[in-house]
Computed example of a mutant assay.
Amino acid sequence: MKSAMGYLNFNYAIILIIILCFPFCKTRSRSYGEPITLQRQNIKQFYKIAKIDSIGNVFVIYARKDSSVYKIVSTKSEENCERLLVGKSYPLLLNNLVQKTVDSHKVSRHAIPHLGGIMYYGAPIIFEPDSILDIYTALNLSGLCLK
């Protein structure tokens, strides 16, 4: 009987040690599949729509604010709404799509001059070296509809 009680106490002791050590266990795995956190920029500022183009299933919207031109992409949608109009100003929540670093290496257009653009839903979106070095999405835009 004593050996059975000793065996049970030993099992409880092992379980207790595992439970107490568990919070201190942590893995340090890195992979290239980690999500990229994009920073919001230019939160809810007004941009004047200068031009609207289309490439495949993507709208390319050129918007101005002060002396800067922003290239904004949005996937086409079939929503019924009042669409953006060239010459009008809208409050847009812009989010930069151009990743600046990968594994602490600079990969922006500024650091790698031959980087030509990005792919967005299968459409090549090209940088314009004279003026546009970043490409944005608008978090409050669906197609050409302001949400």
Rank of each mutant, 00 (worst) to 15 (best):
I17R: 14
Q99I: 03
V58G: 00
P91I: 03
L94P: 03
I125L: 05
R109A: 13
R28M: 10
T75H: 06
I112K: 10
C145K: 00
L133I: 07
G117R: 01
C145W: 01
N95V: 02
I14E: 11
G56S: 11
I14Q: 07
G143D: 09
R64I: 12
N11D: 12
H105T: 12
Y70C: 01
D134N: 15
I55T: 11
T137F: 08
R30V: 12
G122P: 01
Y120F: 10
I132Q: 02
S31T: 02
I52Q: 05
N42W: 12
P124W: 07
I125K: 09
F24A: 03
A50H: 12
I43H: 15
K65T: 05
I18F: 02
K65G: 03
L92V: 00
N11L: 15
T137V: 06
R40K: 12
Q45A: 02
T101H: 04
K2D: 10
T101P: 07
Y47N: 03
K71V: 04
S29D: 13
V60R: 04
D66P: 02
P91T: 03
G6F: 15
Q39T: 13
A111T: 01
P129F: 03
V58H: 02
T137I: 04
S74L: 04
I132L: 09
N42A: 12
S68K: 14
N42M: 12
K44N: 14
V69F: 08
A138Y: 06
I52W: 08
I17S: 04
V98Q: 03
L141E: 05
S77R: 03
R30L: 13
S29N: 09
R83Y: 08
G6R: 15
S89F: 04
V69Q: 13
Q41F: 10
I55Q: 06
T137M: 10
N95F: 13
S77Q: 15
T75N: 06
P129K: 09
C21H: 00
I118L: 05
S29H: 05
F24W: 00
H114A: 11
N11A: 07
F24D: 02
Y136G: 07
T101G: 04
A50T: 08
I49C: 01
H114T: 11
S31M: 09
D53V: 05
Q39L: 07
F24M: 05
R40C: 11
K48P: 01
L92C: 03
C81M: 11
P113Q: 07
K88W: 09
I43S: 14
I17L: 08
N9K: 12
K76P: 01
V86N: 01
Y90W: 00
S29E: 14
I14R: 00
R28F: 11
E78Y: 13
M1S: 08
P23E: 09
Y70G: 02
H110K: 08
F59G: 06
S131A: 10
M5T: 09
V58K: 02
F46E: 14
S74F: 06
N57D: 07
V86R: 05
V60E: 14
L8Q: 08
V102C: 05
L85S: 14
D66T: 04
A13R: 05
S131G: 01
A50Y: 07
Y120S: 03
F127K: 01
S104E: 15
I36P: 00
P91F: 02
C81R: 04
Y32R: 14
I112F: 09
I72M: 06
L115E: 10
L92Y: 02
F24K: 01
C21T: 00
E78R: 15
M119Q: 12
